Computed example of a mutant assay.
Amino acid sequence: MLQDKVMAMNQIRSLRSLILSKETVRDVGRRSFATGPGKAKKGGKGGAASDAPKASSLTKEAKSTTVVGANILKDGADPKVLLDSEYPDWLWRLLDKRPPLSELRRKNIETLPYEELRRFVKLDNRARIKENNSLKAKN
């Protein structure tokens, strides 16, 4: 019994020294980066200071009347928000749920509208190509 306690105390001491050595290795191995004037190049790699998000200087009115961040041109300006009637009809159907291939296969192909028929052909071709590729990969 006494011998077990002594062994346990010795193991605790060795663990403490191991923990201390890991902490010192971690502290010694810690890398610090040079900062301050003259240390970092302007426009160089790793520009963490310049990549930080900046506080918006736009007013609430400007945010509600323009599409902020949509400008892709160097000298351009953000586009203005238009009325819903001024946008094309297809834009409002972009997020509609479309039936998956399994559901399109269950329907009668002859009665499908043109857009769904096109989608069926595309998805069916894609599925056949994947199946053929998997069969070739097994051989």
Rank of each mutant, 00 (worst) to 15 (best):
G46W: 07
A48C: 08
L91C: 02
A70V: 07
R118K: 02
T35E: 12
L104D: 00
G43F: 14
A49T: 05
E86S: 15
K107Q: 09
T59G: 10
G38T: 09
R126Y: 01
T66Q: 06
Q3H: 07
N10Q: 10
S17F: 12
K130L: 15
V68H: 08
L104P: 10
K22T: 01
L123C: 04
E61G: 08
N125L: 05
V25M: 12
I72C: 07
Y87R: 02
R26Q: 03
K42F: 09
V28W: 01
G69Q: 11
K122R: 14
F120Q: 05
S21H: 08
T59P: 04
R31I: 10
L101M: 03
L73P: 00
N139Y: 09
K54Q: 01
P99Y: 11
F120N: 00
A40D: 01
G36D: 02
S17A: 13
A77D: 13
R30V: 05
S14C: 04
I19A: 05
L117Y: 10
K60I: 03
A40Y: 07
L104H: 09
R118N: 06
R128N: 07
E23G: 07
N139K: 14
M7L: 13
T111N: 05
V25E: 06
L101H: 00
I129G: 01
Y114F: 14
G38H: 04
L94M: 11
S17L: 12
D89K: 15
A34N: 01
D75A: 15
F33K: 06
R106C: 05
M1S: 01
K5S: 11
M7K: 14
P88C: 14
D84L: 14
I109A: 00
